Amino acid sequence: MFYTYILYSKTRNKYYVGSTVDLVERLKKHNSNHSGFTGHTGDWCVVWYETFNNKREAIIKEKLIKNWKSRLMIEKLISSARL
């Protein structure tokens, strides 16, 4: 199983879009003290995800969402499919 996901940080008031094979472990990595966009915050939470049968489909969905470049569209997606 593969996942495309959206994280939210209340501290930064930002969203992060990614894809992974292990959502639980990936969230732990995002919340660890590492360099990079999600590092040093520690309050990222999953606000949306979708499952896929293969990595290719998950990456296509990730790129689609990232190409929106629109917070409003991301928030519409999140509100349409509550976890």
Score class of each variant (00 low, 15 high):
V46S: 07
S80C: 14
D22E: 06
G18F: 14
E75N: 03
E62D: 13
V24E: 13
V46H: 09
A58G: 14
L64W: 06
I59Y: 08
H40A: 03
E62F: 11
K69M: 14
Y5D: 06
V24I: 12
G39Y: 00
V47I: 03
Y49N: 15
G36H: 15
N33H: 12
L64E: 11
E62V: 01
I65R: 06
N31V: 05
L83A: 13
F2W: 12
L7I: 08
F37E: 05
I6D: 06
I65G: 08
Y5Q: 04
L83K: 11
R56L: 14
K10C: 07
V47E: 00
K29A: 15
T51V: 13
S79T: 08
S80M: 12
Y5T: 14
T41Q: 12
W68G: 07
N54P: 06
K14F: 00
V21M: 10
F52M: 13
Y16T: 12
K10E: 14
K14R: 04
S70Q: 05
T20S: 15
W44F: 02
E25P: 09
G36F: 01
F37W: 00
D43I: 02
N53C: 03
R82N: 14
W44G: 12
T51H: 15
N67C: 01
L64Q: 15
K76V: 00
K63D: 05
R71I: 15
